[in-house]
Computed example of a mutant assay.
Amino acid sequence: MLAAYAARFAPEDPISALEVGERPEPVAPEGWVTVDVKATALNHHDLWSLKGVGLSEDKLPMILGCDAAGFDADGNEVVVHAVISDPAWKGDETLDPRRSLLSERFQGTLAEKVVVPAQNVIAKPAGLSFEEAACLPTAWLTAYRMLFTQSGLKPGDTVLVQGAGGGVATALITLARAAGYRVWATSRDEAKRAKAIEIGAHDAFESGARLPDRVDAVMETVGQATWSHSLKSLRPGGTVVISGATSGQAPKSAELNRIFFLQMRIQGSTMGTRQELAGLLSFLANTGIKPHIDSVMPLKDARDGFARMNEGDVFGKVIFTV
């Protein structure tokens, strides 16, 4: 079957480690099911894998990808949940110390077929296309958990989304607006600031700009480059929810004095549970909002999509069709 996979690691030139070609079809072990993939989405996780982050060399070659929508063996339209927890684990899958994501220990979704535990498939709402549904299991699920599980926000509160443009950031903006929050966003790029307003932000500011008011919560996925601005933008007692650090994890200062003196909360967040994914699907169905797609291309052209993400020239999700 056709697949996009990591053949080696290349920290300085990750695209050179990507191969698009034939791989053996997966065989579903007991308790797992095969999904025929119709659409799959690209994430920063896939670029990190090509750099050798979170993926061990003994697992190569590894089919990349965490997101997929397609058909199960009975012909049902489904969305794949990418968090694979230990079979004995009960409760929040993201807290299982033995959890992994597809494409870390188990082959991923950038392929014609993927196998996952039976409980990791969820019915796709009829109102979403396969391309739209493929956006949800990583970026949109991460945003949903950040906003509705981890932030403590209530309707009417103000939330700042750092780094408008990426898959998680665009999801955060649209979900937050639909939930009744006042939404502000930042970006270095003027065009991305304009697009942020188009998709739901009440206002957008240049990265690092002084805001009109301090906010109740900051959604942080950029890390090192925006950390100080996030803390300075937060009201006393507010919350920074962090789910990534695409610009690096070592800010010049952690600003611990500011955090404890103003009693700020720093809340980590990663992916989401199957229950949260089901909630996200219901939220989209009930509100009518749709994921933001940067571009759609066939899986055979996956190298072009990886290059777009590596260059940072995206707004929304890059989707591959199968």
Rank of each mutant, 00 (worst) to 15 (best):
99 R>E: 06
143 A>F: 03
87 P>H: 03
161 V>Q: 04
155 P>L: 11
36 D>E: 15
116 V>A: 01
56 S>Q: 13
51 K>Q: 15
148 F>H: 09
160 L>M: 04
54 G>N: 09
41 A>V: 11
130 F>C: 00
151 S>N: 11
120 N>W: 04
139 A>P: 11
71 F>Q: 06
41 A>K: 05
97 P>E: 12
121 V>I: 15
127 G>L: 07
83 V>N: 12
57 E>C: 05
127 G>N: 11
121 V>F: 02
141 L>I: 05
125 P>N: 03
99 R>K: 15
150 Q>M: 14
127 G>Y: 02
135 C>I: 04
93 E>V: 14
146 M>K: 02
140 W>H: 07
133 A>H: 07
110 L>E: 03
126 A>D: 14
148 F>W: 11
152 G>H: 09
88 A>T: 11
50 L>G: 10
60 L>Y: 10
75 G>M: 12
118 A>C: 03
148 F>S: 01
84 I>V: 15
111 A>R: 07
149 T>A: 13
52 G>F: 10
55 L>R: 10
78 V>R: 04
109 T>C: 14
62 M>L: 12
121 V>E: 00
89 W>E: 04
133 A>Y: 04
114 V>Q: 02
87 P>A: 12
130 F>K: 04
89 W>G: 06
139 A>D: 07
73 A>Y: 04
63 I>Y: 02
95 L>K: 15
112 E>L: 08
145 R>F: 03
148 F>Q: 00
51 K>T: 06
81 H>R: 05
42 L>R: 05
155 P>H: 06
76 N>E: 10
130 F>D: 03
130 F>W: 12
158 T>I: 02
52 G>H: 00
126 A>C: 00
131 E>G: 00
154 K>G: 01
108 G>T: 07
